[in-house]
């Protein structure tokens, strides 16, 4: 479903973030990318949702090389991708409900459709009774759930989660990973980037990233 082929990314300041990275994700898989801070995990995710373009190599989404996608097509690509950002990127002036609804608003969903899907998703992530709260009034774990809810509300083909447990205590971490598992079981491909090797223990598919290179199979 997603395939990177000999991808290099050098930022404009000369920083080599990715060196000859190749990886493959099949439909329905739950995949981890682990590596220390600065290894290039976020860069890989950004190449997938086209916030950055590779310096060299191909990034295939389905059979489309998104490395060469036209700028005007990028929004439509992103509608197939749910993104959970490292810093959540929730809007402070919007309630939980409105934050989640935004993902449907921007694709032109109807109000009834938005109501139905947002409530369903909020109860799925366990935030049904926090819908009117503003993000700052929520705990880190709850904010992470809002971010996940927004990423999954329009049923994307793939969910990208960047350090989804980065700021959470171990208990919350387990909750969030369980939630991501539930999403994966429903059929969504999930890609998690993390610096925490414990998360990837006993997992079927793990890519290890070090200094921009993939060091395992």
């Amino acid at each position: 479903m997603i395939q990177m082929l000999h991808v290099h990314k050098t930022y404009s300041n000369g920083q080599k973030a990715l060196i000859d990275v190749s990886l493959k994700l099949d439909k329905g898989e739950f995949v981890y990318i682990i590596g220390p801070c600065g290894a290039g995990k976020t860069s890989i995710l950004k190449l997938i949702y086209c916030a950055q373009r590779p310096t060299k190599g191909m990034v295939l989404f389905g059979d489309k090389n998104v490395a060469r996608i036209r700028k005007s097509r990028i929004p439509y690509l992103r509608r197939n991708i749910g993104i959970v950002f490292q810093d959540f990127k929730l809007i402070k002036t919007r309630t939980v409900f409105e934050n989640v609804a935004l993902a449907l608003e921007v694709i032109g969903a109807t109000i009834t459709d938005i109501q139905k899907k947002v409530w369903k998703t909020l109860s799925f992530v366990g935030l049904y009774n926090k819908s009117n709260e503003y993000p700052i009034r929520l705990s880190g774990g709850e904010q992470q759930r809002v971010a996940i809810a927004r990423a999954m509300v329009n049923n994307p083909l793939i969910l990208l989660a960047d350090e989804p447990t980065g700021n959470l205590d171990p208990e919350m971490t387990v909750d969030i990973i369980d939630l991501l598992d539930k999403i994966n079981i429903r059929g969504t491909t999930v890609l998690v980037a993390t610096h925490n090797p414990d998360l990837a223990k006993n997992k079927r598919k793990v890519f290890t990233l070090e200094k921009g290179r993939i060091t395992n199979g």
Binding site: P75, R78, R79, I91, V106
Partner: peptide
């Protein structure tokens, strides 16, 4: 910026 990242067109 967030809207763009979650699929809003220009």
């Amino acid at each position: 910026e967030i809207m763009k990242l979650i699929g809003a067109t220009d």
